[in-house]
Design a protein around this nucleic acid. Structure first.
Lengths: 327, 327
DNA sequence: TTGAAAGCGTTACCAG
DNA sequence: CTGGTAACGCTTTCAA
């Protein structure tokens, strides 16, 4: 690997001149040509470590997620990457697959790999662990989707309880009295909040909460798929099901259709995420639409503000979700 | 941010002793305690840039993909991350969303962000561009899933043409004469290879190739979904459809079911990827099963070998796919 | 076992 | 505009 000295030697100028040229400074016409040629001839690239050491930053940020294959996170990442790119930052993604050890380990790595900032969707980290790991870490962190109780930093969330309350109310308004809910792991923040909305809606409608209609499992296709049979086996099966995650929704629908169930006649479904996909169905499946683009935009802005020196109090934004079939 | 000097000062030893301790060297018992305490008190973390500059590496590798939300790539990444982690490397992921400009830009960034190696699934980069960007870049690169014609480096692929040939033959054996294929963009390597297998199977069976039965589009849900109606509108619709990507498969199935079509009675389907999901269906959907775990494992091994100094000729491995319903 | 010193490749400063 | 020099924080060497 050629260094800046090699280039300087070949171009016949000083290293500091090369550096200036690289960083957009003005150099004499003839020098510019010589430098450009030398750089090309030697395939010179500035060493990122030397540069990072000198400059104290990298123009890169990390995004740490539980699951990068979920369309919701995919959209958030795409939006953030684009916006950060406009400010000349690159995004590096890491996911921990709902594994506590990995979550800790990846967070730790992210904090010591040289990125300038981090966007993090936590799953299973306590406030103590978080504080211990991030104390004096030197980079700004923005939480998305989930919050860590007791940690007071920038965060972008959605109003899980409210929107689920509304969604379940729509099912109630259609006359459903037995509404099941299939959620993610009980320990996860979003699952908890969504459960709260569900319970409040039932309670406000004077409906007794039935344990058998609540299924909690991993946020995946299999959970949704298996729930279909589990619910049908009940002596008194639900007439509607609220699925609180995209994969769960798809799994449930796949199973229901296979069993010849018509939606919504035989079983009504209210899903979550991936509006494009669900609105394509016939009839369109009503889903909770998280403002993924806005989440990405807000998180990117919060992070950029911090990167540019903003040092005010933490900002926590809770964005509204929409129901896909409402205008 | 505390530096190693601060720690040294507080612990009452020299910086070099701190460095030695951090890197697993032996220090006197009493010093060890003082150092540990000083590090904890100051929340000291070694500067990754200074360390990288000195050591010349990072213990991190990049993975550059067209789409990180695809289950196929998700599995590859998960496998690789685990294996690299065992050798004390971390994986940083970036995706470019089938956008040529982004692909170039992200590749360029990956090559100058300090990672020690790269695993890359190319989509739309010419051999010239690739060679120009990577010339003397100083890190080993392993191609996965797709190859760049004219670029001779380590690569891990699957036998697309062969397995598609077999899959289409299964459909032919069931008596289908009009078999449609829905593939990704015509320019993408895997799509081309899969097309070759399809054409060869038809040709070997003495069936004339019908343009109307070939649909090429983005590798997404919408392409599969829309194709259903497009194919049904034909005066002579296909009796079977081969979908060459997971999202396309799901889109097609969703549309078919909505329209009341029974699978496989009304229309037979042969899909791609995500065996777990497809084998869950009733009846199980036959799919081409790419050896994602083995791809990840092989790519990780190739990269690790290079990282450890292996300098032999490029190794190109073409792994066999399986048909999910064959034992 | 320890520590002083050199040096990794770059940028910033400032004198010329 | 140019270039010598110092400094970024760390690891390594080598002498004590």
């Amino acid at each position: 690997m050629a260094t800046i000295k090699d280039v300087a030697l070949l171009a016949g100028v000083a290293p500091s001149t090369i550096s200036k040229y690289i960083n957009g400074g003005k150099v004499r016409q003839e020098n510019e040509e010589a430098i450009r040629k030398a750089i090309a001839d030697l395939d010179y690239r500035a060493d990122p470590f030397a540069r990072g050491l000198k400059m104290g930053r990298n123009r890169s940020v990390g995004i740490l997620l539980p699951d990068m294959t979920a369309p919701f996170y995919g959209n958030v990442v795409t939006t953030m990457s684009r916006l950060m790119r406009e400010k000349d930052y690159h995004c590096l993604i890491s996911s921990y697959g709902a594994n506590h050890g990995l979550e800790r380990d990846n967070l730790k790595f992210m904090l010591t790999c040289g990125i300038d900032g981090l966007v993090y969707a936590p799953e299973d980290l306590s406030a103590e662990e978080f504080k211990e790991l991030t104390a004096n870490c030197g980079i700004p962190i923005v939480l998305i989707d989930r919050i860590i109780q007791g940690v007071d930093i920038d965060a972008v969330l959605v109003d899980n309880a409210d929107v689920v309350y509304k969604a379940v109310n729509q099912l109630l308004a259609k006359g459903h009295q037995r509404i099941a809910i299939i959620t993610g792991p009980k320990s996860v923040y979003t699952a908890k909040e969504r459960m709260v909305g569900y319970l409040r809606a039932l309670s406000d409608a004077g409906i007794l909460y039935d344990d058998a209609l609540v299924i909690s499992g991993d946020n995946d296709f299999a959970t949704g798929y298996r729930s279909c049979d589990a619910l049908r086996r009940l002596k008194n099966p639900p007439t509607a099901v609220f699925t609180t995650n995209y994969d769960i929704t798809m799994g449930y629908i796949t199973a229901a259709r296979e069993r010849g169930l018509h939606i919504p006649e035989d079983v009504d479904i209210f899903g979550f995420d991936s509006v494009e996909t669900c609105s394509m169905m016939q009839p369109p499946l009503p889903v909770v639409q998280q403002p993924d683009t806005l989440i990405g935009k807000t998180a990117a802005q919060y992070l950029l503000d911090r990167l540019e020196g903003y040092a005010g109090d933490p900002r926590v934004t809770r964005l509204a979700c929409k129901l896909s079939l409402e205008k």
